[in-house]
Each structure stands twice: as C-alpha cells, then as structure tokens.
C-alpha cells in the first residue's frame, strides 16, 4: 500500500511540467475568452456614430486587444505542440 502511494506521488512529481502546462493553457483560454468579448464589444462601439478622436481611441484599443489575442493563440499552439511532443516521447520509451 505504501509503495503504491509513493509511486503515485513520484508519478505526480514527474508530471509537474504537464500539470503546470495544463493550468497555463486553461488560464490563457480564459483570458482569451475575455479578450474575445472585449474585441466584440469594441467593434460594436466602432459601429456607433463617433467623432474622430473617439474612433481613434477605440481603434487603438482594438489593435492592442487583437495583438494580445494573437499572442495568446501562439502560446496555446506552442503548449499544444509541447504536450503532443511529450506524449510522443512517452510512447517511444
């Protein structure tokens, strides 16, 4: 019984990378969801009757949110690649 518990703990310890990757992925997805909503909201704002300054301000915010989303997507792709790499190396063992 004790050996089994120890092995479980060891497995958990060795899998720390995977756990933190999964947590990061989850966290980034949540942030991306918020950013998507924000971008949608900003686009709706742009459709309104705005003066030049207001339009420019919203566009600036839109550029930033869009770039942040792209950055987040890249990170999600990276994490996926890392995860699939881990699984492959596990399979070849």
């Amino acid at each position: 019984m004790k050996t089994r518990l120890l092995l479980e703990k060891l497995g958990h310890f060795l899998g720390q990378d995977k756990v933190s990757q999964r947590q990061e992925m989850k966290s980034i997805r949540e942030v991306l969801k918020k950013l998507k909503n924000k971008e949608k909201h900003l686009r709706e704002e742009l459709d309104k009757d705005l003066d030049h300054d207001e339009r420019h301000e919203i566009q600036t915010k839109l550029h930033v949110v869009h770039a942040q989303r792209l950055k987040g997507l890249d990170r999600v792709k990276e994490l996926r690649a890392e995860q699939s790499g881990n699984e492959k190396s596990k399979g070849s063992d």
Binding site: E24, S27, I28, L35, L62, H63, V64, Q68, G72, R75
Partner: peptide
C-alpha cells in the same frame, strides 16, 4: 501569469504604433 504572458512587449507595441502611423490599421 497568463495576463502578463499575453501583455505586449516594447517591440510588439512599436510594431503596432508604426502600423498605425503609416496606415489606417484594421485588424483581421
């Protein structure tokens, strides 16, 4: 941590600022 990772660095900001200066930047 996720927010800090997604925050834009100086170069990324400079790229957007340059794009905004030259054209009316319209994100995809």
């Amino acid at each position: 941590i996720a927010s800090e990772r997604l925050a834009l660095d100086e170069q990324e900001l400079a790229r957007i600022a340059n794009a905004a200066r030259s054209t009316v930047y319209e994100p995809n």
